[in-house]
Design a protein around this nucleic acid. Structure first.
Length: 565
RNA sequence: GCGUCUGUAGCUCAGUAGGAUAGAGCAACGGCCUUCUAAGCCGUGGGCCAGGGGUUCGAAUCCCUUCAGGCGCGCCA
């Protein structure tokens, strides 16, 4: 039942406003004593030309209570509404029980497609902790949008173009072999690349060779192309293992190379529309009217740039997927770049430019202040994952050594912790990486929420009372249970706002709140007790619904929920 | 210099697009397991919401300004 709508409907008899307007004014009070919903009457005082307290008094007198809303109270200009707890509990809980994992889903995204560009690894470079945010945020948003009924297309926009690949070929020929690369994988390619840079300092001919090799790739030379394809395939194969561990899947690996032959139409169109101007030998689109520096489209030598490629990619995605929105999950350092090329597309008359969204996030910085991406010292994602699993395995040995599938649970908890931590704070916050905090599983972290899930599971298996049957919800008529039920009822709204604001952290936070509230309830009240089947059933249903919602919440941020741990 | 983001407890952060007495976790200290998972629960201390102006019935939240820090500002991506 939609209580907000119900209240607004009833109020609309006394106030001359649209139901939806009243609905927007309703809020959820800060404290449970203040009711389940509240209407601040200050907003009305201008329209009605009366003091807020008078309005709330008047409304509270005129409001007809019923089975759903049993009490209305006027306090300090607020009108507080109290739901009939038993009915409200029964209402939400039976809904969750019957809908199961479909609870909180919606159809708002029917026939709409969201493209998500995230993770976007570079060929021949290992994934490091700098890739964690984009991967976790992108994956979570993809799950959230699917949950809301959208089609989603997850795109790994590979960094697979540029003279760096010429360098790689030169390095490969100088220091390595097929056998060594087969054995060493990306690490070997990274080694080659570093070695190349060391030696190229003293040998200028190397860079010339690299440029020549890259030219060969561009021109379709057989040997060059074969090596390039080999490195590319090797990289995808290796990062796929990490994606498998993180349970992340992509629909497309079309990267920079893919758009190489798709830029010319964009350039032609810019030219036709008179947007392209020559400046210091390069071709740019001037954006000074919009308080931005020019967007560079072609270099002096005629080569394309990042923005050119991104525009070609946007056009391709529109043509191919006809997206409702296209999201780019990258760090905020690229704010200007996105603002620029979105604007250029707008100037070209591309209507879809308004549907392009830069979902930006903060840096991961090392404790010494360095940026993880710019030094060879970056912590590899693989190492972080392995250490987290190892640590959680140790904790299992210590706390629950009897557990059957230790390795699997350790992996769920370890990996879950890493993802959870990446999605706990608002996207825009910078993060300092330290091993200590990265491997700290205490407090507001994945294991806390997962543990609550396991607790629910455990209680449910302990009891042989079926969830189906006559139920006495009056046993849930206490503050602790009431808070849980309120959270369960709010869950669909939380998901919607997470989608609207591109903030998986809303769901992470919610999962902590729910776990915390349930843990308190669990400590204060016995679920399996001897006060009769009908009451036990109500409390078991509460545990079942909590378990279900935690499971969905964690799923939406890309974290698994174990039944035992 | 210009643009932009950030600044809330010792530390890390919430604060639901302006609402009721600003909340968590960590760290510190003190309690709670013969009873459904103690990876849990409860309690104590800790605040000039960076500073200053304004708008408003009401501001951590909006506007202006100062300070501190991050990021960006044409031939990288």
């Amino acid at each position: 039942m939609d209580y907000k709508k119900l209240i607004a409907d009833k109020l609309s008899k006394s106030i001359e406003l649209e139901t939806s307007q009243i609905e927007d004014m309703l809020e959820i009070p800060a404290k449970a004593e203040m009711g389940d919903f509240a209407l601040p009457c200050f907003k009305l005082s201008k329209i009605l030309r009366k003091a807020p307290t008078m309005i709330s008094d008047m409304l509270s007198e005129q409001f007809e209570t019923d089975n759903a809303i049993e009490k209305v109270q006027s306090v300090n200009g607020y009108l507080n509404f109290y739901l009939n707890k038993q009915n409200a509990s029964a209402d939400v809980l039976s809904k969750i029980l019957s809908e199961g994992e479909n609870y909180s889903k919606s159809a708002e995204g029917k026939d709409k497609t969201i493209c998500l560009d995230y993770s976007s690894v570079n060929i021949a470079k290992p994934m490091h902790i700098g890739h964690l945010s984009t991967t976790a945020i992108g994956n979570s948003l993809s799950r959230i949008y699917k949950h809301l009924g959208y089609n989603t297309v997850s795109i790994n926009h590979l960094g697979d173009w540029g003279t760096q690949f010429g360098k790689l070929i030169v390095g490969y020929k100088m220091y390595s072999s097929k056998k060594q690369v087969e054995e060493g994988g990306i690490a070997e390619l990274a080694r080659i690349y570093v070695q190349y840079h060391v030696d190229a300092e003293n040998d200028e001919t190397m860079d010339d060779d690299a440029r020549a090799w890259f030219k060969k790739i561009e021109d379709g030379d057989a040997e060059a192309l074969e090596l390039f394809e080999y490195f590319r395939a090797l990289t995808i194969e290796e990062v796929s293992k990490i994606y498998a561990m993180l349970d992340v899947k992509f629909d497309s690996y079309n990267g920079e190379a893919f758009y190489q032959d798709k830029m010319q139409p964009i350039i032609d169109e810019l030219e036709e529309k008179g947007l392209l101007v020559e400046d210091q030998g390069a071709k740019v689109v001037m954006l000074d009217k919009y308080d931005m520096p020019p967007c560079m489209i072609l270099k002096k030598d005629g080569a394309s740039l990042y923005a050119t490629r991104d525009m070609a990619a946007a056009q391709y995605r529109k043509d191919t997927y006809d997206f409702h929105k296209c999201l780019y999950v990258t760090a905020y350092e690229q704010n200007l770049h996105f603002k620029q090329f979105f604007k250029v597309l707008e100037l070209m008359g591309k209507d879809y430019s308004k549907d392009l969204v830069h979902v930006n996030y903060g840096w991961v910085r090392m404790e010494d202040g360095s940026m993880s991406t710019r030094k060879g010292t970056a912590v590899e994602l693989k190492d972080l994952i392995n250490k987290a699993i190892e640590k959680s395995l140790n904790i299992i040995e210590e706390k629950n050594s009897e557990l059957e599938n230790k390795q699997e649970v350790a992996s769920i908890v370890g990996i879950g912790s890493i993802i959870f931590a990446a999605l706990k704070n608002n996207r825009i916050k910078d993060m300092v990486f330290s091993w200590e905090s990265a491997l700290s599983f205490e407090g507001e972290a994945a294991p806390y929420v997962q543990y609550t899930h396991a607790r629910c599971s455990s209680v449910l298996t302990k009891s042989d009372i079926s969830l189906d049957g006559k139920t006495d919800f009056s046993t849930l008529d206490n503050e602790d249970a009431g808070k849980i039920i309120t959270l369960l009822r709010d869950f669909p709204e939380i998901i919607k706002s997470a989608a609207e604001r591109y903030e998986p952290s809303f769901i992470t936070r919610f999962s902590i709140d729910l776990a915390k509230t349930f843990n308190k309830y669990y400590f204060e009240h016995r679920i399996i007790d001897d006060d009769g089947e009908e009451k036990v059933r109500a409390r078991l249903i509460l545990a079942q619904c909590t378990k279900q919602v935690i499971n969905t919440a964690l799923y939406l941020i890309g974290v698994k929920a174990p039944d035992k741990m």
